[in-house]
Amino acid sequence: MAGTPTTPRPAGGPVLQDSVTAAITEAFFAELAATGYARLSLEAVAKRAGAGKAAIYRRWSSKQDMTLALLSELVTATPEPVDTGTLRGDLAAFLAEMAQGLGHPLVLRILPDLIAEGGRNHELGEALLSTVRDPRRARATRMLERAVDRGELPAGLDLTAALDLLAGPLYWHLAVVRAPATPAYLDRLTAMLHAALRA
């Protein structure tokens, strides 16, 4: 998974060691992948990290808070879509970055579980949308708006449908079909999305 999050020091609280935060973060994602969100316990995360449970509560107030904070760190670490100067090039770079992220073994185990849990847990579901979905869609929106500004896409583009089109096929291919995103597949998908968006 992505790099070590920087956990701010609570006002007047103890100094939080980055090495402990890193160990807890790694243990959290491993435990989440192994058990799923519903069965995840902070005690198990602490044990896997070789830390005390108090070390977790000095950083996060609850399981949900921890989950959202660490997922937000991953999203924040994701770079802006590359501006290649053409829609076709931007789509290819976007899909390559998305395939690398979604293709990570832990992500493939964690993401479907969190989506399912978000459907059962309204509060978690809404928080996941604002923490994970919305920032990624905002970045993809900027990519599409650049193409509109260049005249490659119509000014009246349905952004909602376009964003769904960008995310859906590759997620289905990797997380549901469980097929590899080979360079040849990504090339074909890029060409199809390019044609569909311009239609």
Results as ranks from 00 to 15, higher is better:
P14M: 08
V15L: 15
L16W: 04
Q17N: 13
V20E: 08
T21S: 12
T21L: 04
T21Y: 10
A22N: 08
I24T: 01
T25M: 05
E26G: 04
E26N: 06
A27V: 01
F28Y: 13
F29T: 00
F29W: 06
F29M: 05
A30S: 01
A30E: 04
L32G: 05
L32R: 01
A33P: 04
A33T: 00
A34M: 10
G36I: 00
Y37K: 10
Y37C: 06
R39V: 04
L40T: 09
S41W: 04
S41D: 03
E43F: 15
A44E: 12
K47V: 14
K47T: 13
A51N: 07
A51Q: 13
K53F: 06
A54V: 12
A55T: 08
A55K: 13
A55N: 15
A55H: 13
A55Y: 04
I56H: 08
Y57T: 07
R58M: 09
R58K: 07
W60Q: 02
W60E: 00
W60S: 02
S61C: 02
S61L: 03
K63F: 12
D65H: 12
D65M: 06
D65Y: 09
M66C: 14
M66R: 04
T67R: 12
L68F: 06
L68W: 05
L68N: 05
A69I: 00
A69E: 00
S72W: 00
E73V: 14
L74E: 14
L74H: 15
V75G: 11
V75E: 10
T76M: 01
T76V: 09
T76C: 01
T78D: 02
T78V: 05
P79I: 00
E80F: 11
P81R: 00
V82N: 03
G85N: 05
G85V: 07
T86C: 07
T86I: 07
L87R: 07
R88S: 11
G89N: 03
G89F: 06
D90G: 14
D90R: 12
D90H: 10
D90F: 13
D90Q: 08
L91R: 01
A92E: 00
A93G: 11
A93N: 13
F94G: 02
L95Q: 06
L95E: 01
A96Y: 04
A96C: 04
E97W: 09
E97S: 14
M98H: 11
M98C: 09
A99Y: 02
A99L: 06
Q100T: 15
G101N: 05
L102I: 03
P105G: 07
L106F: 12
L108S: 14
L108N: 10
L108T: 15
L108I: 11
R109Y: 05
R109N: 06
I110T: 02
L111T: 03
L111W: 05
P112Q: 01
D113G: 09
L114I: 04
I115F: 15
I115M: 14
I115P: 08
